[in-house]
């Protein structure tokens, strides 16, 4: 009985509603079964090459055979444990930092922002006892994560400085910050990646080669720093003026009051917005394709050019798309939950 009542109020409240409901049901019946059939029922999961795949279904053999490449690019197979270790360390440092109510937040923030960058770079690149793996052999998901993490970590301090600069009382610093932020926010990221890949070699002193990956990460970081600065500005503006005045009354100077009073509170408020900027960054790392770096989407796309696997466009995009989707959806759920908690905390 309850089900019928529910249906009457939520699906068939009026004639128009009933019409919409029926149209939606018709669409579902028309399109969902074929998709399920293609992706699951008629799909081939095991095998070694194209000929093992049944017609009329997805050929997941393609993804299975190429899985190593999609994850590590051309990273030497004997060395992939280093990538795995770097990934495990990243998870081990970041998850306690994001986990609500986990202890030792400061320790994990220090580990993520200060210890991890050189450690991860050493693991991936090698040197000091590990065989060197050139960045041109990097690719796939590991490259995507690497660029997002390093561009994000690099952009964060710059974003904080820019946001503070925009609030500064010194006109020169303020206008410089505004100009920097508006410039990088006003131009497309694809153009910035082009720009970084062509101009950085001209700027650095002769003899110092700039790695292609470094150029892309610098380009991404500059753009994201400007967006992060705007997110942090929101937090700074939301902070009651009484906080800085109280700090000044206690005799704290600008830097002390910023470091101990303003930033901890402002960053807390701007965390959800920062998380959204990080999601955008993760999605935009795909653009490095234009300078011939093969991130997850790039390498999946490139694999389609292999004559052995030609025509498996949908399989490739569904695979890459679902990885991006789960990562971004997870992050956005986390940020939405955080936003809810923060708004509860400040409710009067």
């Amino acid at each position: 009985m309850n089900a019928i009542r529910w249906a009457r109020t939520n699906l068939f409240a009026t004639w128009l509603d009933a019409l919409f409901t029926l149209a939606c049901l018709a669409l579902l019946l028309r399109y969902v079964p074929p998709v399920v059939e293609w992706a699951v029922l008629n799909a081939t999961w095991n095998g070694n090459d194209r000929t093992d795949c049944a017609a009329g279904g997805a050929c997941w053999v393609f993804v299975r055979v190429r899985f190593g490449q999609f994850m590590y690019g051309l990273y030497p197979a004997a060395q992939t444990w280093r990538v795995d270790l770097a990934a495990i360390l990243l998870v081990a440092f970041v998850v306690p930092l994001l986990w609500n109510g986990a202890p030792f937040k400061k320790l994990f923030a220090f580990l993520t922002l200060v210890v991890y960058p050189p450690l991860g770079l050493w693991l991936l690149l090698g040197g000091f006892g590990l065989p060197v793996v050139e960045t041109r052999e990097w690719g796939g998901l590991m490259l995507t994560v690497f660029m997002a993490v390093y561009a994000g970590i690099g952009a964060f301090p710059l974003g904080v400085l820019l946001a503070l600069g925009r609030q500064s009382r010194l006109p020169l610093i303020r206008s410089l910050s505004v100009a920097f932020i508006e410039f990088w926010r006003g131009v497309p990221i694809i153009a910035v990646i082009f720009l970084a890949s062509m101009l950085l070699p001209l700027i650095v002193p002769a003899g110092v080669g700039v790695d292609r990956l470094v150029r892309a990460v610098v380009g991404l970081a500059l753009c994201i720093a400007a967006y992060m600065a705007e997110a942090i500005r929101g937090g700074l503006q939301a902070l009651p003026k009484g906080q800085t005045e109280a700090a000044a009354a206690m005799g704290l100077g600008y830097w002390k009051s910023t470091w101990f009073i303003v930033l901890p509170q402002a960053l807390r408020i701007s965390l959800p917005a920062l998380a959204n900027e990080f999601i955008a960054l993760l999605k935009n790392t795909t653009l490095v394709l234009v300078v011939s770096l093969f991130d997850l989407l790039g390498i999946v796309h490139a694999a389609l050019a292999d004559p052995k696997w030609v025509g498996l466009t949908m399989e490739a995009y569904v695979f890459a798309g679902s990885i991006f989707w789960f990562a971004c959806f997870g992050l956005s759920r986390w940020s939405a939950g955080l936003e809810r908690r923060l708004s509860q905390g400040t409710r009067h």
Binding site: F20, T286, L297, F329
Partner: peptide
């Protein structure tokens, strides 16, 4: 925002699907 559960479910699915996928993948698709 529709009161019709199915319609709002469709719209929510669309929004959550679209917002979490890179634009470049859309272009390629």
């Amino acid at each position: 925002l529709s009161k019709n559960w199915l319609v709002s479910f469709f719209a929510t699915t669309y929004v959550e699907f679209v917002r979490n996928i890179p634009l470049l993948l859309f272009v390629f698709f």
